[in-house]
Design a protein around this nucleic acid. Structure first.
Length: 239
DNA sequence: AGTCATGTTGACGA
DNA sequence: CTCGTCAACATGAC
């Protein structure tokens, strides 16, 4: 279900549990229930498409995949894959995958557009050094270079920066690359509010749309990544 | 009601 | 070793 900005929204909703003690943890896909029980939830954060739950001795990451959901103080009919209870409150996570990491695990904040430490230059360097021969439309979904970037953001920023997804990275003028990276940052951050207002998808320019300003939006499945791609031929250039 | 999807992982074989 | 393909995921919006 979620891309990076959605995880920022999730984090905000769970923020109020910071500092509270987990009185019980459960879930059919939770090998860490015993370790988590009795621990204080020190901090909630997000990185890319992961929700981060920091405890005294370790860190739990929650990935929502395509179907992941969570409910606060509410329960669905199906069993939760992961759940946290705090005295009289609780959070149920459905269809999520969790992992346990070292509490000092370092995420590369230089690549995180939501971080104060984001470095556009670093993303640019990685893109040009490691992915020069790849298609830009494919690379954007690579979480190593673009943590949190998903299919909606991918389609929208390629359109907004007027770049055709089939361009190989090395053929795109540097100025256009910089435009694209700047747009990824701005679009991702602006998305948070739109998601909170539940108008994110409907306010998209090309994603799941048929036309833009009278121009046809072409739709196809990108072969390598097998993801739906939307583009306006007249606007998005091949270099 | 069938279709499709904001995503990843692991199994398998070429 | 790497690459493509497939399936799975207590789903849910349209």
């Amino acid at each position: 279900m979620p891309e990076g900005p959605t995880l920022v929204v999730f984090k905000k909703k769970i923020d109020s549990f910071q500092g509270k003690i987990v009185t019980e943890s459960s879930g059919y896909n939770n090998p860490f229930a015993e370790e988590i029980t009795g621990k204080k939830l020190l901090e909630v954060d997000s990185y890319g498409k992961y929700l981060l739950l920091y405890f005294e001795d370790f860190l739990i990451t929650v990935h929502f995949g395509l179907f992941g959901r969570f409910l606060i103080n509410d329960t669905k009919k199906v069993n939760a894959s992961f759940a946290l209870f705090f005295d009289d409150e609780f959070i149920n996570f459905y269809v999520v995958r969790i992992k346990k990491l070292d509490k000092d695990h370092e995420f590369d904040q230089g690549l995180n557009v939501f971080s104060e430490q984001y470095q556009l230059d670093k993303t640019q360097r990685i893109l040009l050094e490691k992915y020069a021969d790849k298609k830009i439309g494919d690379v954007l979904l690579n979480q190593d270079a673009f943590p949190g970037l998903g299919n909606i953001i991918r389609n929208e920023v390629l359109f907004l920066s007027k770049i055709h997804p089939e361009n190989e990275v090395k053929n795109i003028p540097l100025a256009k690359i910089k435009d694209l990276l700047q747009l990824i940052k701005e679009f991702s951050k602006a998305s948070v509010e739109l998601i909170e207002q539940k108008i994110w998808k409907s306010s998209a320019s090309v994603y799941q749309k048929k036309e833009w300003n009278g121009l046809e939006i072409v739709e196809y499945v990108a072969p390598k990544i097998k993801r739906k791609t939307y583009l306006v031929e007249e606007i998005q250039k091949l270099f």
